[in-house]
Simulated assay, not measured.
Amino acid sequence: MNKEEQDRLVKACKKNNRDAMEKMYNVYMPRMLSVSFRYCKNQSDAEDIVQDAFIKVFKNIKKYKHNGTLGSWIERIVVNSAIDHWHKMKKTVLIDNSEFIEESDVQELDEIEKDQFSKQLSAEKLRTLISDLPEQYRYVLNLYAIEGYSHKEIGKILKIKESTSRSNYTRARKKLLENMRAIGIEKH
């Protein structure tokens, strides 16, 4: 969808045009469902998050300023809806940072290793491996590595300490690498 089409669609949605809203939903829903799946393990929760997000999109469409792309704006709302969902569903079990991880515990990947891993690992398989991480690890990994939040911001969003966010991210990476190696994806 080009910028002119996007602007016309937004303008129609701002006038509560149901056809435009349906078109926007149909155009962006598959991508947003994929974003939602980064944060939850099952189809039902992912769909609930996307539905909640689109309700927020249409309630707040008048606030859309045409800065950046419409898809990015909707994606941010989906991520925020996923975080809201996590807070609602969160169990009282939080992963603590009481055991600090030494830097040597996590083997950082150099560029050659990253390239080798990416050749052996499909996006779908990576998504599955990430979804198998403990919930808080998965959220921290997604928010830090994919969405670009700082550990300080993640701490505020998830209501955990900044150091817990760092620890969870390190553990998530370590567990992800272990899981990749367990399925035969190795460094060469």
Rank of each mutant, 00 (worst) to 15 (best):
Met21Cys: 11
Arg181Asn: 14
Lys65Trp: 01
Gln51Ala: 12
Glu124Gly: 05
Cys40Val: 15
Glu135Arg: 02
Ala145Glu: 13
Ile183Thr: 10
Ile83Asn: 01
Arg181Tyr: 14
Phe58Glu: 02
Ser44Gly: 07
Lys174Ser: 14
Ser122Gly: 04
Lys152Asn: 08
Leu94Arg: 11
Asn97Leu: 08
Asn179Ser: 15
Glu103Phe: 12
Lys11Ile: 09
Ser118Asp: 11
Met29Leu: 12
Gly184Arg: 00
Phe58Thr: 07
Asn67Leu: 15
Glu99Leu: 15
Arg181Cys: 10
Asp48Trp: 01
Ile95Glu: 10
Lys161Leu: 12
Arg18Cys: 02
Ser118Leu: 14
Val50Ser: 01
Glu4Tyr: 09
Ser167Asp: 11
Ile95Val: 11
Arg38Gly: 09
Asp110Val: 08
Lys3Pro: 04
Leu121Ser: 07
Glu111Met: 13
Trp73Ile: 09
Ala82Leu: 01
Leu70Ala: 07
Gly71Arg: 01
Ile130Gly: 03
Lys15Glu: 13
Val10Glu: 02
Tyr39Leu: 05
Asp45Trp: 04
Lys90Arg: 15
Val27Phe: 14
Ser167Tyr: 06
Asn168Asp: 14
Arg38Tyr: 02
Trp73Pro: 08
Glu108Arg: 07
Ser104Glu: 11
Cys13Glu: 00
Ile77Cys: 09
Pro30Ile: 10
Asn142Tyr: 12
Val78Tyr: 01
Ala145Ser: 12
Leu133His: 00
Leu121Lys: 04
Asp115Lys: 12
Phe54Lys: 03
Ile146Ala: 10
Arg181His: 13
Glu162Ser: 05
Tyr137Val: 02
Gly184His: 06
Arg171Asn: 15
Lys56Asp: 12
Ser150Trp: 04
Ile157His: 07
Tyr64Ala: 10
Glu5Ile: 07
Gly155Tyr: 03
Met89Lys: 11
Thr170Cys: 04
Lys65His: 10
His87Gly: 04
Tyr144Asn: 14
His151Ile: 12
Lys114Pro: 01
Lys41His: 05
Lys114Phe: 08
Leu143Glu: 02
His85Ser: 14
Thr164Ala: 15
Ser165Arg: 03
Arg138Asn: 08
Ile61Arg: 00
Glu5His: 07
Ser72Trp: 03
Glu102Cys: 11
Ser81Thr: 15
Arg173Tyr: 06
Gly184Trp: 08
